[in-house]
C-alpha cells in the first residue's frame, strides 16, 4: 500500500471508529432492534469507505455518514418482506430500562411508517433543521414538515393512548373488493 493510501486508510479507520457508536444508536432508534442497527451501521460504514476518497475532503463527512445510514434504513424497509414484518411484527422489548415512558416511546416510534420515523429521529435526536433533514432524505422541506407533523401526531396519540389506557378505536368494517 502506498503511503498516501495508508494515511487515507488510517484516517478512515479513525473516523469510522469514532462515529460507529453514534451511527449505531441512531440506527437503533430507526430500526428498534440492535441486531438490525448493527447491520445498518455496517452497511453505512462500508459505503462510507467506498466513497472515502471524496468524503474525507468534504466539509461535513458526518452529514454524509448520516445520509448513508438513513438511505440504508429506508432501502431495507422497502423490501417486500420487511414491509410485511413492519405490518405485523411486535418486536420484543429489550431489557433496556425499567422506565415505562422510554419503552412506550420505543413502541410508539416503531409503529411509525419508516419516513415519519426517519424525520422524527433526524429532527429530534440528530437535532437537524428542516432544511438539513430534507437534504439528508433527498426530499423537499415541505415533505419533512408534513412527515414530521404526522409522526409527532401519531407519537402523541400513541403515548396518550397508553398513558390513559383509552380503548382502541373501533375497527373498520369488512369491505370486499379493491381498496387502492
Amino acid at each position: 500500500m502506498r503511503e498516501t493510501d495508508t494515511e487515507t486508510h488510517d484516517e478512515f479507520a479513525e473516523f469510522a471508529a469514532s462515529r460507529a457508536p453514534w451511527l449505531r444508536r441512531t440506527a437503533y432508534l430507526l430500526s428498534g432492534d440492535w441486531h438490525t442497527a448493527d447491520d445498518l451501521t455496517q452497511t453505512a460504514i462500508t459505503s462510507l469507505y467506498l466513497h472515502w476518497p471524496r468524503v474525507h475532503r468534504m466539509e461535513n463527512p458526518d452529514g454524509y455518514a448520516r445520509t448513508t445510514l438513513f438511505n440504508a434504513f429506508l432501502a431495507e424497509r422497502r423490501s417486500p418482506w420487511r414491509r410485511v414484518l413492519l405490518r405485523f411484527e411486535k418486536e420484543p422489548l429489550a431489557p433496556v430500562t425499567d422506565v415505562d415512558s422510554i419503552l412506550d416511546l420505543r413502541e410508539a416510534l416503531a409503529a411509525l411508517p419508516p419516513r415519519q420515523r426517519a424525520t422524527v429521529v433526524l429532527r429530534y435526536y440528530c437535532e437537524l433543521s428542516v432544511e438539513q433533514a430534507a437534504e439528508t432524505l433527498n426530499c423537499s422541506p415541505g415533505t419533512v414538515k408534513s412527515q414530521t407533523a404526522r409522526g409527532l401526531d401519531a407519537l402523541r396519540r400513541a403515548l396518550e393512548l397508553r398513558h390513559h389506557h383509552d380503548p382502541q378505536e373501533p375497527l373498520h368494517p369488512v369491505t370486499e373488493g379493491s381498496r387502492t
Binding site: 444508536r25 462500508t46 469507505y49 429489550a94 422510554i102 429530534y124
Partner: peptide, 28 residues
C-alpha cells in the same frame, strides 16, 4: 422528546456491537 430519544438510544444494556470496521474496509 429529544431527551427521551436520547435516553432510548443510550440504553445501558445494549448488546455488544457487532460492527466490524476492518470487515467494512475489506468489503469496500
Amino acid at each position: 422528546l429529544a431527551v427521551e430519544l436520547g435516553a432510548l438510544a443510550h440504553t445501558a444494556d445494549a448488546p455488544p456491537s457487532r460492527v466490524d470496521i476492518p470487515a467494512a474496509v475489506h468489503a469496500g
